[in-house]
Amino acid sequence: MPYGLNMSQASHKMQKDDAIKLLHYALDRGINFFDTARLYGESETIMGEAFAGMRQDVILTSKCKHFRLPDGSLPAASDLKKIMTDSLHESLRELRTDCIDVYMLHYGDLEILELEEVYELFSIFQQEGLIRYPGVSVYEPEETKKALDKDFWKVIQLPFNLMDQKQGEHFHQASAQGVGLVVRSVLMRGLLTDKSFQLHPALKDVQAHLHTYRKLYTDDSQTLASLAMKFAASIPEVSSVLVGFDKVEFVQEALSIFNGDYLNANDLKMAKSMSYPDQSFLNLAQWDKNGWL
């Protein structure tokens, strides 16, 4: 499905055969960790077909459906269990597997992270061999803190990038507890690239801040995207960095960037000091609602 800035009018979607070829291309070149979800369009179905017969070569992460009701409330315990159980079995069927390596709550907010039914059900899924490790996808640092304090989740997926580093305050605790951190939004939907965006006037300070990262470039061919990806990969507590691609060239570019040669200690320290001054303002979902994107 389309993903990025200015996607309200986007209609482009990869053809299934092209997507499968691209997945095979990535796998053949050593990329073995793939992230999907029940709510990501046809992604699970396509991955299931692409990796049929080679399941042992890939690590799959998927996420259950959201289960908040339209009015924002949570369903009764019995309904909640049915939603989660049905969602898992749908994922298993579409992915053509009998076990998902990392199975996640798709956005565990503070209230959801307190639901005992969730922990009971994930424990059952694990005991039955349907999932290997329980994980949770979060947005806010306080959700990460709550997830870590529960000492149950083995993987946490969270947003983290050059601009928005507020989640970093909990990385040490995650590492100490042996919790894997999977970082998303490393390019902020394409904002942290060298594409020419003329942002809404309300975002003029954001646009100005993007230009300050040029002082971190190590050579004339450096790009903001490569800097952003190398920055995320330079954080020792980060287990995996999620990037999307719909062209072979993007896979090739990612492989050239994630080559083990990342920011040195001084450059990493400087990059950490250059996060956006008002971290709470960095809310792309709210910017969308405001009509700024």
Rank of each mutant, 00 (worst) to 15 (best):
L88C: 07
E44D: 04
D79I: 03
E42I: 05
A77E: 14
D86P: 03
L88S: 13
F51Q: 03
D57K: 15
K81W: 01
F34N: 11
D35V: 00
T61W: 00
I46C: 02
E49M: 09
T85H: 14
F34Y: 14
I83Y: 14
S62M: 04
T61K: 03
K63H: 06
L74R: 09
I46W: 12
S78K: 10
E44V: 05
A76M: 11
Y40W: 07
V58C: 04
R38H: 13
A77T: 05
M84G: 04
G72E: 10
G72N: 08
L69N: 07
T85P: 04
D86F: 06
S43P: 14
D57P: 01
T85G: 01
T36Y: 05
D71Q: 08
R38D: 11
G48V: 00
T45W: 02
Y40Q: 00
P70A: 11
T45D: 14
T45H: 08
S78D: 15
F34K: 06
G53R: 12
G41R: 01
R55S: 14
I83Q: 10
I59G: 02
F51Y: 07
L69Q: 14
V58F: 05
K82N: 09
R38T: 07
G72K: 06
K65R: 13
S43W: 09
S73K: 12
T85F: 03
L60E: 09
E49Q: 15
T85W: 09
L69A: 03
I83F: 11
T45Y: 05
L88M: 13
K63Q: 07
L80K: 08
V58S: 08
A52Q: 13
K82A: 13
S73Y: 11
F51H: 03
G41V: 02
K65H: 09
I46M: 01
I59R: 13
E44N: 12
L74A: 04
R68V: 03
Y40I: 00
S62L: 10
S87D: 01
A76H: 15
L80F: 07
I46D: 03
L88D: 14
P70N: 07
L74V: 09
T61H: 06
T45E: 14
I31K: 10
L39A: 15
F33Y: 15
R55Y: 08
K65V: 05
